[in-house]
C-alpha cells in the first residue's frame, strides 16, 4: 500500500525583491508518512514546515521534487477530495453560523446532497461543536474556531487530515479537546499530519515525528525510538529509605552499573492544569 504522503527531494525557492534573490525555504526534503498513523512535523518558525504542507496541498508550487498523496499526484482534485486541511490560525466568514460553514465546506468537498446533513452533524459531533453550531462564527472563542475548523476539515470523511498548528493560542483544556479529536481520527484509521509547537502534545499523540530546521529534514522516526535513551534506565520506587537506596546502589555497582541521578517523578504542569480546570469544554 502506498504512503499517505510521499515527498521526494522536495525543494522550494522563493524569489525576493525586484532583483529576484532566491530564498530556499525547503531544501531537498524526502519523507514518507505511513497510513493510519499520527505524524508530527516539528521545527522552529520559518523552518519550512508550513511551506512543505502548502506544497503537499497544491497551494504553493514546488521548485523541484515529487509529491504524492495516497498514491496520487498531489494537487489533483481527486487527491484533495481524500484530504482534509485545517490551516494555522484559521479565519472563516464571520456572518456564517458554524453549521452553515461546515455545510458550505461539505458541498465544496464533494459530499453527495443526500449525505450532507448526516456528514455535517457527524463532523460537528466529533468536534464537540453541536451545541454552538447555530451561533455565528463571529461570536466564537479561539478554541471554538479551531474546533469548527477541525469540523470543516473532516466533514467529507477524508483519509488524510493535515492540521497546521491546531492548538496555537488555545488553552490547555481546548488543546486537550483537540488531542482527543486527533485520537478519534486515529481510531477510525485515518492518517493525521500535525504541525505543532507544543512538543508535549506532539509527544503524547504522535506515532512518528520529523524535525525540520532551516528547510532541511534533520530527524525522522517513531516517537519511542527517537526519544528513548537506550543506555539509560528509569525505575520508579515507592517508600525508598536512605538505607534501601544505599543497598540498591551497592547492588547495581556490583554488576558494573552506576546510578547517575535519583529524582522525584514530576507530573507536567499541563496535567496539573487539566486536573484542576475541569468542566469547561469551550476553550
Amino acid at each position: 500500500m502506498s504512503s499517505a504522503i510521499s515527498v521526494r527531494h522536495l525543494t522550494k525557492d522563493f524569489r525576493i525583491g525586484i532583483r529576484g534573490l532566491k530564498l530556499r525555504a525547503v531544501d531537498d526534503v524526502s519523507l514518507e508518512i505511513p497510513r493510519g498513523q499520527v505524524f508530527g512535523l516539528l521545527g522552529p518558525n520559518g523552518c519550512g514546515k508550513s511551506t512543505t504542507l502548502k506544497i503537499v496541498l497544491g497551494l504553493v508550487s514546488a521548485t523541484a521534487g515529487e509529491i504524492s498523496i495516497l498514491g496520487e499526484p498531489s494537487a489533483t482534485s481527486s487527491a484533495r477530495r481524500r484530504t482534509g486541511f485545517l490551516p494555522e490560525a484559521p479565519y472563516f466568514h464571520k456572518f456564517l453560523s458554524g453549521r452553515e460553514l461546515v455545510r458550505y465546506c461539505a458541498q465544496l468537498s464533494g459530499v453527495a446532497d443526500a449525505d450532507v446533513d448526516a456528514a455535517v452533524e457527524d463532523a460537528l459531533g466529533l468536534a464537540a461543536m453541536t451545541e454552538a453550531a447555530d451561533r455565528t462564527i463571529g461570536t466564537y472563542s479561539k478554541g471554538m474556531l479551531q474546533r469548527i475548523g477541525f469540523a470543516q476539515a473532516v466533514v467529507h470523511d477524508p483519509e488524510l487530515v493535515i492540521l497546521d498548528e491546531p492548538t496555537a493560542g488555545v488553552d490547555p483544556v481546548g488543546s486537550a479537546a483537540i488531542g482527543r479529536m486527533i485520537h478519534a481520527m486515529r481510531e477510525k484509521g485515518k492518517t493525521v499530519v500535525l504541525c505543532s509547537h507544543l512538543l508535549g502534545q506532539v509527544e503524547q499523540v504522535c506515532d512518528r515525528v520529523a524535525i525540520m530546521d532551516r528547510g532541511k529534514l534533520v530527524l525522522e522516526g517513531a516517537v519511542d525510538d527517537v526519544l528513548a535513551r537506550r543506555d539509560r534506565h528509569v525505575m520508579t520506587v515507592e517508600a525508598m529509605t536512605p538505607a534501601a537506596r544505599a543497598a540498591a546502589e551497592a547492588a547495581l555497582a556490583a554488576h558494573g552499573a552506576k546510578v547517575a541521578s535519583v529524582t522525584h517523578p514530576r507530573r507536567s504542569l499541563e496535567d496539573l492544569f487539566r486536573e484542576l480546570v475541569t468542566g469547561s469544554r469551550d476553550a
Binding site: G58, L59, F85, L86, P87, Y91, F92, H93, L108, G110
Partner: peptide, 14 residues
C-alpha cells in the same frame, strides 16, 4: 488576506 482561500483551495475546488 484573511486566508480563507487557503481553506477553500485545499478542497477539491479548482
Amino acid at each position: 488576506d484573511n486566508r480563507t482561500a487557503l481553506t477553500l483551495l485545499a478542497k477539491p475546488l479548482s
